[in-house]
Design a protein around this nucleic acid. Structure first.
Length: 203
DNA sequence: TAATCCAACTCTCCCCGTGG
DNA sequence: CCACGGGGAGAGTTGGATTA
């Protein structure tokens, strides 16, 4: 079978995320639910994509085979971590929303950031953002999704590391209520940090 | 004429009221 | 307290119409 441009776009999207679920793809492709299932079945049958029902009552999730990953810039994921499942799902919702609101910007996923960092051998900074928005004027905005309150020190460390990076102009935190409360004091002092409640992204 | 779209359908789980 | 079951919600499927 011949892969269409859109097929490759799908493969890239999935592998940028690592894995994603059906509603993500429906949103990404701007098609109806039923159509998503059709498109994905083709890719699964041809062994480009693996479909898995991880959790009862949740949408199926998709990730690439190495055959599928050949069409992307990244290797396929090795496994799906349950510990980060919720974070991952919400992260992708945030990413999809940001891509819609800022179509002029380029979305760079955490997997890409990590990959590039390895590639360039830049390993200086320990922390990699959940995503990065790159605007045409070269303005860079780091995106973080915080569902639980990490240690305050850890957060401050992360924020400090951002402060020392010239190319990152702002950090947008998408937070749960508790994380919002914990971070609001910190964010008030730093103008380049913005907080957003995450309510609308909970699926 | 193959790809695409979409309404309407099935399936399954879960919530919650009722009756033993 | 538990067993049953109606109803609702959401995931996934199907087939016929439409489009390119």
């Amino acid at each position: 079978m011949k892969l269409t441009d859109r097929d490759i776009e799908i493969l890239r999207f999935i592998n940028d995320c690592g894995y994603c679920v059906t509603p993500h793809l429906t949103n990404f492709l701007s098609v109806k639910r039923a159509r998503t299932y059709q498109l994905m079945r083709r890719l699964v049958q041809r062994k480009f994509v693996i479909k898995e029902h991880l959790l009862q009552g949740h949408p199926a999730l998709y990730y690439l085979t190495s055959k599928g990953a050949n069409f992307t810039d990244l290797p396929p994921i090795e496994y799906v971590s349950l510990g980060t499942y919720r974070h991952q799902i919400i992260m992708i919702n945030v990413a999809l929303k940001l891509m819609r609101v800022h179509p002029e910007a380029i979305w760079i996923s955490e997997r890409h950031l990590k990959h590039d960092k390895c590639y360039d051998g830049i390993g200086k900074r320990g922390h990699v953002a959940d995503g990065l928005l790159l605007f045409p004027d070269n303005r860079q905005i780091a995106i973080e999704v915080e569902l639980s309150v990490k240690g305050r020190q850890r957060i401050e460390g992360i924020i400090k590391s951002y402060a020392s990076q010239f190319d990152i102009k702002e950090v947008w935190y998408f937070c749960s209520q508790s994380a919002y409360n914990a971070l609001s004091g910190l964010a008030a002092k730093k103008t380049y940090i913005k907080l957003f409640p995450i309510k609308e992204f909970l699926a």
